[in-house]
Design a protein around this nucleic acid. Structure first.
Lengths: 144, 144
DNA sequence: TTTACTGCAAAAGGTTTGCATGGGT
DNA sequence: ACCCATGCAAACCTTTTGCAGTAAA
């Protein structure tokens, strides 16, 4: 907790880049409530805290924050990308309702073994896997 | 083989829609070599066969062809969606090289059991899962 | 002092849509 | 004949980028 900033500061200085208040604001806000988000939501949340940051800066910084390992891209929906804060949280996958959009996170440890198997079989160095399961939740099936 | 068209014809008439040469051209071309594609590639392939179809029609028809179960969306990359012909082929997942873009398809039958487990546990009617594994292939690791 | 970072606004690029025409059923 | 589907071009929307000013290091 607060750890994210430390990690980002090291990352940035290691790369010979600069840290800025804007970057810290973004990261702080993301981890203030580490739920899935898209650029627009994050922008509005930041505005809500009084930040005057521009969307351009958000777009420019998300790849860096991703490279640093604090967030990852999860899925693209309605024409835009969604992100998931991952730092400090175990790897998980998503079960998503196609109607209401509700998202349930679940952990599937077998996938680690699967990764290893695939890496060996096809001679790949696996970087990540993304498993997205979709369907209809109980509530949405009733109100069909 | 050719089966795709039959399926689409039934689907379309069941929905009270109309079949057209453009729609058949799209489907025929997709299954002429059923590899992953994006809209632009498909458009060029169609042009290559002499078709005068517009991109607008492709964009308007892909959702229908998807709903019919002939294709599915797989991943969004470089700002646009990629598609996968699925009809008549077993369900598979993708292992993708982050550098050269090479795609290896693999089958993981355990995922069916996983789907069932998730459905029961969270009371979801599962529609589909998408597992996308990324990393670096042997060739790209050597030429780093 | 250097030069990466920011905000702004314009541009880019994929996808959608309005409209008039054409063609299934 | 009805009205859905098409082509064209404009609109739309997310994301990227050029530029001039600002501020880390």
């Amino acid at each position: 907790m607060g750890d994210e900033l430390d990690r980002f500061r090291s990352f940035v200085s290691l790369k010979g880049l600069r840290n800025t208040p804007e970057r810290e604001d973004i990261i702080t806000e993301i981890f203030a409530s580490p739920d899935h988000f898209d650029v627009d939501e994050l922008y509005l949340r930041l505005r809500g805290t009084g930040s005057k940051i521009s969307k351009a800066s958000i777009y420019r910084n998300l790849p860096l924050i991703k490279e640093c390992g604090l967030i990852r891209e999860i899925w693209h929906e309605n024409g835009h990308m969604h992100y998931d804060p991952v730092y400090g949280r175990g790897h998980h996958c998503h079960l998503r309702c196609l109607k209401c959009g509700k998202v349930i996170e679940f952990v599937e440890k077998e996938l680690v073994a699967l990764e290893k198997r695939l890496g060996n079989k096809y001679d790949f160095e696996i970087i990540e896997h993304r498993l997205d399961v979709t369907g209809y939740c109980a509530h949405c099936r009733q109100t069909d």
